[in-house]
Nucleic acid binder design. Structure first.
Lengths: 216, 216
DNA sequence: ACGCACCCGAACCGTACGGTACGGTTCACC
DNA sequence: GGTGAACCGTACCGTACGGTTCGGGTGCGT
């Protein structure tokens, strides 16, 4: 049992695991394979060949195939960055624009091929392995974003720009207005239409409707 | 090549395939296996044992494993029934109640373990096999429901109860308000909380908000 | 120069599973 | 009673893939 294997069970869910540069390169290759061909395309032999490393190293670094998958998810989650929200509540218009920018970033992440591939992977594994991947994606992805969104919305409420009882509830409505059923359709393999590619107007429409419901 | 094999490629997507009673029993067993253990739990040998049939029959009926999976999806889609909407636009209150009932039924379907298992299956396969399963689920499931919803909303508009430009757009908003991110969280394996199990109040809240946006 | 840590590439093993073949049984129909 | 279709159970085959082992190579500290 190699001591350096990536074991998500023992690592804090909110702790950023540190991968060596070499390992990050390999994980990036794994991600590419995953985006191109789905889970069954990511075999240990195939990854070793693509990334020009040995299977022995893969097993030393990640323990087993599940550890590799978990590492891929954790690695990609650590790559996603949202725009800062410093001093975004100067006035009503800039705050609304800030919310729209947040939603646009959210759409950009969720509709990207990378995110779709990882969601497909986690969903496909969600009824096995005591569901480590799904939990990982939720904790490192969705819950992080949700927390960011809640603080943003709370800030708007404190400044008298929004009115709601429950920030989580308000965020879920914003999410629903923005994502609608596009996410699940993309996950199922439907190609994105032109309207779905215009993230900016989708975000603005969603925020407009959100303000109709929760604007002060 | 058995002549009776279920081949989704040659069957019209909107045509209901006819499975013999014996085959339906087997497909029900397959569905059970799928709900309990996910895709990898549905092996041909396992299904043959569970359903007390021979693998030979499975291959004769469904061609190969992909055909079996497609048949399971088609079978379950044919089982889902929505409440009739006959004469539901008598007055404003009953129409709104009807919309709420529709949304509640939608939530009931999408949040059921069966639907979740089939969505997980289709999503997991969506980057292989030229994506037959995802297309099947979309055409036989989502698009059917979407068509039903659009006619319902159009009816409301004709009676002066709703106001919108694009019925598809309005439906997507209704969908987003109702589903929010609950579907994807359940797909990822998160357990449904008590609030998520109260379909009726979720539906009513969603319809209330929908009327704030699209009520005449 | 020596040893040690790390790693690559390839060969190897065990197993699970998709798919096929075959003998035996039931049952409908003539 | 005979015949053939459908089907069950089981044994079997080929292969793909997860995981292990081993020989050799490279660079670094002493």
């Amino acid at each position: 049992m190699p001591a350096a294997a990536f074991d998500i069970a023992t690592s804090r869910p909110d702790a950023a695991p540190e991968f060596s540069p070499r390992q990050q390169v390999v994980l990036q290759h794994a991600l590419t394979l995953l985006v191109e061909g789905g889970e069954k395309a990511l075999t240990t032999a195939g990854l070793a060949r693509t990334a020009s490393c040995s299977k022995e190293s893969l097993y030393k670094w990640f323990g087993d195939r599940d550890g590799l998958l978990a590492a891929v998810v954790a690695f990609q989650a650590s790559q996603v960055q949202f725009p800062s929200e410093a001093g975004a509540t100067a006035d009503a218009a800039t705050f609304q624009a800030h919310v729209a920018a947040f939603v646009e970033a959210l759409l950009g992440v969720l509709f990207s091929e990378t995110s779709l591939a990882l969601n497909r992977l986690s969903i496909g594994q969600s009824n096995t392995n005591s569901n480590r991947l799904g939990q990982l994606l939720l904790v490192r992805g969705k819950h992080m974003i949700s927390a960011r969104a809640r603080t943003m919305l709370e800030s708007g409420r404190r400044h008298g720009l929004l009115k709601f009882d429950n920030a989580e509830d308000a965020y879920q409505v914003l999410y629903g207005l923005a994502i609608r059923d596009v996410h699940i359709r993309l996950l199922l393999g439907e190609a994105a239409g032109p309207a779905e590619k215009d993230l900016k107007s989708q975000a603005e429409t969603a925020v407009d409707r959100f303000y109709q419901l929760f604007g002060a």
